[in-house]
Computed example of a mutant assay.
Amino acid sequence: MNVNPNDPKHSESLQRLLKIMNELRAKCPWDKEQTLSSLRYLTIEETYELSDAILENDLNAIKKELGDLLLHIIFYTKITAEQNAFDIRDVIDSLCDKLIRRHPHVYGTAHADDATAVKQNWEQLKLKEKGNHSALSGVPSSLPALLKAIRIQEKARGVGFDWRPDDLASVWHKVNEELQEFVEHIDPITQKPHNQTEAENEFGDILFSLVNYARFVGINPEDALEKTNKKFTRRFLWMENTLRQTGQAMHTLTLEELENYWQQAKKAVDTPTDTTATQQTPR
């Protein structure tokens, strides 16, 4: 379904939201007190809630969380308008101008045959526009480490520093190479590192190389790890609930008994479920 940009309903909805924001800012004690800084951590929380909804493929929740994020954008621009800095129109116009500049293959004479070419053009144009001295300048320092690794690799790829797309074997060889280097720092008898700092560095290299391999095979490592986190949590909660019902404590069981419950948990909670109930039919 294509969105008709000339449909007046879109303008009406935005105007309604702007009107509500003005009223809240003028009449609500909580909204009156908010600043750019006070909203920051709330915006981060809303972003993670949207991420959860996307991983659960819950379209109703996605709609809600997108609305919450949009509210934050409107709230920020209301505050900056009060400071005579910029308003929502300036933000939208700036975004539109950037999108046109960054897509010369759509709005100009440049060519991009695939998504990889588009990303490379984007990064090169970004460097030129911002005058950055490094392709990595646009990676936020506060990003979580896993996300930061993904973005660093994507930025490097954007300027041509990457493995050849058809050389997946070398990418996987690098993973094995880093694993072997880590093993060399582990005492074969005690199974503990010879040197904690060096082992930590090598373990970081393993993770970085795995992120790299995941990128080449089309897996988002952040999403993959979070799905595993959720899967483990479901199984563990099932075990806790089951043991509670039988009057047993987890710490009193043997490893063999725990493994047996774990296998039961996998069968109980890993059965694929029908998610169509959470999906909406496109209008």
Rank of each mutant, 00 (worst) to 15 (best):
R40C: 00
D167H: 11
F75L: 08
K267E: 07
N84W: 07
L66N: 05
A149W: 04
V139E: 01
P165G: 04
L258N: 03
D97K: 13
E202Q: 07
F236Y: 10
N121I: 15
M21P: 03
H111N: 08
K27A: 12
H72L: 05
D93L: 12
H72P: 00
E256D: 13
A115I: 15
Q120R: 15
D205M: 07
A110Y: 08
V3A: 11
D31Q: 15
L207T: 06
N2L: 13
K64I: 13
N229A: 12
V211G: 04
I62Y: 07
W238I: 00
L179S: 00
K128V: 06
L70A: 12
V139R: 00
L136F: 01
G138Q: 04
Y48D: 12
E12K: 08
A199V: 04
I189N: 14
D167Q: 07
R157K: 12
D97F: 11
P282H: 07
T271P: 00
D162T: 14
I20D: 04
Q34I: 10
C28H: 15
K78I: 05
Q180L: 05
C96I: 15
L143N: 03
R157S: 12
L147M: 14
E200M: 13
S51F: 15
E198N: 14
H251C: 05
L70G: 01
A214Y: 08
V211S: 07
R164H: 14
K27H: 11
F203I: 09
A149E: 06
E240D: 08
W262S: 02
F216P: 02
R25S: 10
L70S: 06
D87I: 06
F232S: 09
V139N: 02
M239K: 01
L243Y: 03
D166G: 01
D274S: 01
E178Q: 00
T77D: 05
M1I: 12
N260H: 10
L24M: 11
A265C: 00
K227I: 15
S137N: 11
E256Q: 10
A110I: 06
P5W: 00
E46K: 05
T246M: 07
F232Q: 14
I152L: 11
D52N: 15
V159M: 04
